[in-house]
Amino acid sequence: MMTKITERIKAVLLTALLTTAATANADVLESHMSAWLVKQQENKEVLKPAGEAGPGDIIEYRMTYKNTQASPLSALTISVPVPDNTAYVAASATTPVKSQFEASIDGGKTWEHEPIKRLRKTAEGKLRMTDIPVSEYTNIRWLAENPIQPAEQQAFTYRVQVK
């Protein structure tokens, strides 16, 4: 089980970097992504490099992007998957960058602002509009509202819990 999780961590890192690179020329946008295992030690949160993770573990993904050209870059979209056998941790997507946050429940085919709602049948068989639990998110993304300036670095983080 641990080895499979390690391979999924690597796959998420690669997918996120490739997805972001597709939105900008690699010569002008430097990107880096890392995975951290979130642990509690002496009532404090400690982050350790995520080599292996097991059921119940929390993994924090950190992405940084730096504009290496002399002019601003606009329309930066950071799109990342929620790996198989993990669940997005509610409200864990953070960035100091002014941006719109969206999530997908269909593998990134469609994107919506939170809370995502759908008509679902109740126990009585009636249709009712309900919030989709974050555990059903398959992908998340940020749409940066301001250009990334020359030499500026932007950071984005999110967490998942291993099932």
Rank of each mutant, 00 (worst) to 15 (best):
142 W>Q: 05
105 I>R: 05
122 T>Y: 14
104 S>T: 02
44 K>S: 12
119 L>D: 08
114 E>C: 00
162 V>N: 02
19 T>Y: 01
51 G>L: 13
82 V>K: 01
129 M>Y: 02
73 L>W: 02
99 S>G: 03
43 N>Q: 14
111 W>E: 04
19 T>Q: 04
147 P>Y: 04
65 Y>H: 10
148 I>C: 02
111 W>H: 03
49 P>G: 03
133 P>L: 05
155 A>T: 15
157 T>G: 01
1 M>A: 06
10 K>M: 13
144 A>I: 03
83 P>T: 06
9 I>K: 02
97 V>Q: 10
12 V>D: 01
119 L>N: 11
144 A>W: 00
55 P>A: 06
68 T>V: 15
16 A>V: 06
33 M>K: 03
92 S>R: 11
157 T>L: 07
47 L>P: 02
60 E>V: 00
44 K>F: 07
63 M>W: 06
119 L>F: 06
54 G>V: 15
28 V>Q: 07
111 W>V: 00
160 V>L: 11
137 Y>M: 13
136 E>K: 07
141 R>W: 01
43 N>E: 15
137 Y>I: 09
31 S>E: 10
52 E>A: 09
56 G>R: 09
131 D>A: 05
79 S>E: 12
86 T>G: 09
2 M>T: 06
157 T>M: 10
161 Q>S: 13
125 G>R: 13
18 L>F: 08
88 Y>H: 14
67 N>G: 11
153 Q>P: 07
148 I>Y: 00
50 A>M: 11
127 L>Y: 15
96 P>N: 09
26 A>D: 08
20 T>L: 08
64 T>N: 08
109 K>I: 08
124 E>P: 01
58 I>P: 04
140 I>N: 03
122 T>A: 13
156 F>N: 01
149 Q>S: 10
124 E>G: 12
140 I>V: 15
98 K>G: 01
51 G>V: 12
161 Q>G: 08
78 I>R: 06
6 T>L: 10
107 G>L: 04
139 N>S: 12
60 E>H: 02
20 T>S: 04
13 L>S: 05
115 P>C: 07
72 P>A: 09
98 K>R: 08
118 R>L: 04
57 D>K: 11
90 A>F: 10
83 P>C: 04
90 A>Q: 13
38 V>N: 02
127 L>K: 14
151 A>M: 14
160 V>P: 08
113 H>Q: 13
107 G>Q: 04
2 M>F: 06
43 N>R: 14
32 H>K: 15
8 R>L: 10
60 E>W: 00
87 A>S: 10
143 L>S: 03
42 E>Q: 14
116 I>Y: 08
42 E>R: 09
45 E>G: 03
84 D>Q: 13
147 P>H: 07
64 T>L: 09
32 H>G: 10
120 R>C: 07
48 K>G: 01
113 H>D: 11
28 V>F: 10
100 Q>W: 06
32 H>Y: 14
149 Q>N: 12
125 G>L: 13
135 S>A: 09
122 T>H: 12
104 S>Y: 00
84 D>W: 05
4 K>A: 13
10 K>P: 00
58 I>H: 11
97 V>R: 09
26 A>V: 14
141 R>Q: 09
108 G>D: 00
87 A>E: 12
32 H>S: 15
85 N>M: 14
131 D>F: 01
41 Q>W: 06
104 S>Q: 02
159 R>G: 11
49 P>W: 07
84 D>M: 10
26 A>N: 08
25 N>F: 04
57 D>H: 14
13 L>K: 09
87 A>M: 11
135 S>I: 00
37 L>E: 05
